[in-house]
């Protein structure tokens, strides 16, 4: 072993190690993007990953149709009762027209945000060891995507771009504590911040924190972005699932169930440009 540490081979290994570390640190700190070796590897692996992802989706769909019959029936029954409850809510409000407009605002993202510039992207890989559901998409800087661009689906917010390569990007989801975004309860306009935590991520939930003790947030309320930070205003995040009291500071928090099914995503949209983009990047929830 001592002989090996003095040998030429060890010096070669040590020099390769130092070169890789230097290259990576330089790319991350100065370039604020993926390191060159990772970019090259992503380009080489891209066609294989697309192929394996498509094969995986076909196999998953094939088995889902046989295994999820009872699960789909139960989900269908739950959705029907939820629809009945929503209809009752609509009928109870004084101005039905205002309520229809309320729903239309969220369904017509592009109509209400004509300044948004979208890029479609497909998931090509997901890190199974990451408890927060981070994934990689098949578009990169060549498609106009840059770091901190919001990532959404037609259901709601998913997360934002954390690493940019030439033809692929990594997305950190809202289940991660690295994300902190300003949010509002759409009904009561109580403001707070939405962030992630490991204990919530295990249940596919995120946390709506720093709510005042006099807030009127209720289970079922919709939570939207307030426009603070890197996300544009008015995007759906999720619905309030549960309300609790933070033992550390006696503030109220709510558990948010994101509308976007993060564990089952296949396609997303990246907002590459919107009015007011370039605000303060809000990171580091805790």
């Amino acid at each position: 072993m001592r002989f090996f540490l003095r040998s030429r081979q060890f010096k070669i290994i040590l020099s390769i190690f130092c070169a890789v570390v230097l290259l990576t640190v330089t790319a991350v700190i100065i370039g604020k993007r993926m390191s060159p070796q990772t970019d090259i590897a992503a380009a080489i692996a891209a066609p294989f990953r697309n192929l394996f992802t498509n094969v995986s989706n076909v196999v998953t769909d094939f088995f889902d149709s046989y295994n999820n019959g009872s699960k789909l029936s139960l989900e269908n029954a739950e959705l029907k009762s939820e629809i009945d409850a929503l209809r009752q809510k609509v009928a109870d409000y004084e101005e039905i027209t205002e309520q229809n407009s309320f729903y239309k605002d969220y369904l017509g993202i592009k109509e209400s945000h004509p300044d948004f510039v979208f890029t479609d992207a497909t998931l090509i890989s997901r890190d199974q060891d990451d408890p927060y559901g981070s994934f990689t998409i098949n578009k990169g800087s060549a498609s106009g995507i840059s770091k901190y661009d919001p990532v959404i689906t037609d259901a709601g917010i998913v997360g934002y771009i954390t690493e940019v390569g030439l033809i692929s990007c990594k997305v950190t989801t809202i289940l991660s504590p690295d994300i902190t975004l300003g949010a509002l309860d759409n009904r009561t306009h109580d403001s707070g911040i939405v962030t992630g935590a490991l204990s919530f991520a295990n249940k596919n939930l995120c946390q709506f924190a720093n709510l005042s003790r006099s807030c009127n947030v209720a289970v079922g309320d919709y939570v939207i972005t307030s426009g603070e930070g890197i996300f544009p205003e008015g995007l759906l995040i999720g619905s309030v699932y549960n309300i609790g009291i933070d033992e550390n500071n006696n503030s109220i928090y709510a558990e948010i169930k994101p509308f976007a099914e993060i564990s089952e995503l296949r396609s997303v949209m990246v907002i590459t440009s919107f009015e007011g983009q370039g605000g303060i990047s809000v990171e580091g929830g805790k």
């Binding site: 190690f17 890789v20 570390v21 990576t24 640190v25 790319a27 991350v28 993926m34 390191s35 070796q37 990772t38 590897a41 992503a42 692996a45 990953r49 090509i124 890989s125 997901r126 890190d127 060891d129 990451d130 927060y132 981070s134 990689t136 690493e163 390569g165 692929s168 990594k170 950190t172």
Partner: peptide, 14 residues
């Protein structure tokens, strides 16, 4: 592995 993992850049390589 770094192209798909949620770890910091270069972590898996090193």
């Amino acid at each position: 592995m770094d192209t798909a993992a949620a770890t910091p850049q270069g972590f898996n390589a090193v």
